[in-house]
Design a protein around this nucleic acid. Structure first.
Lengths: 191, 191
DNA sequence: ATAGCTTCTTACCATAGGTCAATTTTTTCA
DNA sequence: TGAAAAAATTGACCTATGGTAAGAAGCTAT
């Protein structure tokens, strides 16, 4: 929880009251590899701030294939924002890829922080702006790069993630099959 | 400009002072087909709210291919948010696809509205949240749908856009070539 | 340590979509 | 309105990536 408070305080001034509120609506939790935090189809009540470990959010299409939307690593937030924003049940599943510690927020209560402590707004705005920028970049990369270029870039963006992800986690993030990723790795090793 | 004020007032309460500030940092402008509002490589000073018409933002890759990031239609904002947020020169070009009316904001001055009139924050937060949600959906669609499924979805999302876009505008948004889009249309017509 | 999973690799073939080039259609504007 | 330019279509061929299936390698739990 300290991690998050520091993270927030590095960009805005947070009153003791607001800090106390954040405490009161959250809970530090630890999940082990394979555990599911949010399950496609069920209600989404939580928004998670990752303090350690690695998680991912993905959806499963009609043919059963998984598609990874996001990896959640230290100091990132993860949840199903489509569901939260539209007040629908989850379109995504969030699962834990290695032992992780997160701060679980009640999404509805977190959303009330803006009325209660408007000082929090700039923090969230900055977060959302950065998120939009990274999504824009991801879309442009998907449009213009080949699979192996996307993989190279992925390795730069998430340097250690290969240590605790399965091949198909990465492949399904890049938009290719695990077999193709395997072939790409072989080609890369040849050089 | 009325359009925008109404748009804002439909979700938040806006003081007369804040309204006056918005007026003071913006200017209604009209662009005709083919005009460029922001050019890749140059400085980005503006953020545009579209009141009529249609624009698009795109980047050009090393091999000269264009990739459309976004279409800007009535009541949407368009600019190069990568450049604005990172304070870099433009990675995108924004061009006008048909005669359009926009409200041009000075991006830096618009950014000061949060200190001056914090009441504006919830409006922007809602906008950013919706934007994030639509980008998440777009990424998931790109990962799981075929080219022709993406085209069908596109037609639902932007019903009238085919009237004033070129084939390759749409193709480069969907991540295919214009030739492929042409073939997809032929197949669709056969049914 | 080893049985039993899960994941990864590899080989072969299939296919969606890309490339190039010629032709037709549409748009633009003098 | 009609010539020139731009865009769209089409055909022949190509390539990156997918699908399937079998075997190899890695984990996990007793």
């Amino acid at each position: 929880m300290k991690d998050l408070i520091n993270n927030i305080k590095s960009s805005i001034e947070l009153s003791t009251e607001a800090e106390a509120y954040l405490f009161s609506i959250s809970k530090e939790r630890t999940f082990s590899k394979g555990e599911v935090l949010i399950r496609q189809g069920q209600n989404v009540n939580s928004n998670y701030f990752v303090t350690a470990g690695c998680l991912r959010s993905y959806c499963v299409d009609k043919s059963g294939k998984e598609h990874t939307l996001q990896f959640g690593v230290k100091n990132w937030w993860i949840s199903d924002y489509i569901a939260i924003h539209n007040e629908e049940s989850a379109t995504l599943t969030v699962e834990c890829l290695k032992e992780s510690t997160v701060i679980e927020f009640n999404a509805k209560k977190l959303n009330r922080i803006y009325e209660l402590y408007p000082e929090y707004e700039p923090f969230q705005r900055n977060l959302l702006e950065r998120h939009v920028v990274s999504l824009h970049k991801r879309i442009l990369n998907q449009l213009q790069l080949t699979a192996s270029e996307r993989y190279e870039l992925f390795l730069v963006q998430y340097p250690d993630i290969e240590l605790f992800t399965r091949n198909y986690h990465i492949a399904s993030y890049l938009g290719i099959t695990q077999e193709s990723l395997s072939r790409i790795r072989v080609e890369k090793a040849k050089k």
